[in-house]
Design a protein around this nucleic acid. Structure first.
Lengths: 234, 234
DNA sequence: TCTACTAACGAACGCTGTTCGTGTCAAGTA
DNA sequence: TACTTGACACGAACAGCGTTCGTTAGTAGA
């Protein structure tokens, strides 16, 4: 029975792609790695999966929730050491450096964690292990608890800095040239107002992001070490 | 001489408002303080000045440049101490705490500085003074230079965290209830996988943002103190 | 008085996150 | 086997975004 030609023809009954939360997170992570967190829009993720933006909202409440899921996925890449009381400082340095590396490797993902306590399963596993190591090292409970927070922020801030840096590099802007321009600008500042900056230009432009991260991390760990065994009155 | 009626009549020759970079920055800062950095759009700023968004681009290159100008304006609020070698640690704590306070008082402005070295005149004045104090305290050049970077990141990350927190508070969401929910969630975690988190719930939820900021700042200053006078081989 | 020039501006482009209503398929039930 | 129900994919739309283009208006200099 032929239908009237002005009737809308039925859609071709093509099999629907089985969309899932995992597939959406994977697509977002792919875009994040290839470009940046700004490139991760609901439309881009949907296009990556061959569908429209509205389809994602059946599996994910907001864009923010999606980004938190991506963050936890990235957190799963961080290797967890078994606590060894004799090597607690070394273990913390490794764990925190690995955390920084994992975040920095995945674009500006660290942006989503600032201002929000990450509570995904992988993030909690890391927090648990970190607290165990700190306690094994004799750091008092409250210092240990706050250290997780404080160091987490430090790691995130550094990862963002590193991500911006490598994004510039990827965009073809030469970071060496940038640093040289900064150094020139510092050296050209009025000597009567900025004598110390001018004198410290070599120190200010020395080292890369990883060196600076390690420096700050050592300060924090050294600070924690000086708290071991100390009784803190409430 | 009457013109053909289909010709467009001349606009009423009204006096134009004198737009300026300062006025634009002031308007942006006003919106930032009243709401958040997300509310600072070119359209909102223009509307605040009774004009359209295109008019701003004669005075400011991008939105980013505008935000950097706003950041430097905020940096100008931070009081600068005169270096006193005997009190260098106390002076650093004051300067850095004041920096944190100034940023936290102005919404999420700290967001603009992550991934970017602030080089406005006020930011440079702070860096200069900070380096002077560090040197007066006997901190080696490279450690002093990197400390400015490292502590700056720490301050910015904390200010963002604090801003998100007070934004939630302003939006009517009770932060106490939020913390209680977090504590309940921690306590409800499977005890075999997360014994330490469960045991440390009181410590994990103790203190407010300022307490935690001060704790981390003390770790950093203590770490710097342990570097004074130490010769670092290149 | 006429001419350059600068700044203000209206309109538009292509993008964003999110919602609504519709459409379609698959499983459950009579 | 026929029918209902529920879940979910999806097109279209909304209001907002940063930025650019071409035009217009007011002013300073010749």
């Amino acid at each position: 029975m032929p239908e009237p030609p002005w009737w809308t023809p039925r859609k071709t009954a093509q099999r629907r792609s089985p969309l899932s939360r995992e597939a959406i997170v994977a697509a977002a992570l792919k875009i994040l790695r290839a470009e940046s967190i700004d490139a991760v829009s609901m439309r881009r993720v949907a296009a990556e999966l061959g569908t429209g933006p509205a389809s994602l909202y059946a599996h994910v409440a907001h864009k923010e929730e999606l980004l938190e899921l991506v963050f936890d996925e990235v957190s799963g890449e961080i290797p967890l050491p078994d606590p060894d009381p004799a090597r607690w400082r070394e273990q913390l340095r490794t764990l925190w450096t690995d955390s920084h590396t994992a975040l920095a490797r995945n674009g500006d993902i660290a942006r989503v964690v600032l201002g929000r306590v990450p509570m995904g399963p992988n993030a909690l596993r890391i927090a648990e292990r970190t607290l165990e190591i700190l306690r094994a090292g004799g750091v008092p409970d409250r210092a240990a608890a706050w250290a997780v927070d404080v160091v987490g922020m430090y790691i995130a801030a550094n990862a963002i800095e590193g991500a911006v840096h490598s994004a510039n590099q990827k965009a073809g802007r030469d970071p060496g040239e940038h640093y040289a321009a900064v150094a020139r600008h510092f050296a050209a500042l009025p000597a009567d107002q900025f004598p110390t900056i001018a004198a410290l230009v070599p120190a200010l432009t020395a080292g890369d992001g990883d060196d600076r991260f390690a420096f700050g991390l050592d300060l924090l760990i050294e600070g924690l070490n000086s708290q071991t065994g100390r009784i803190v009155e409430p």
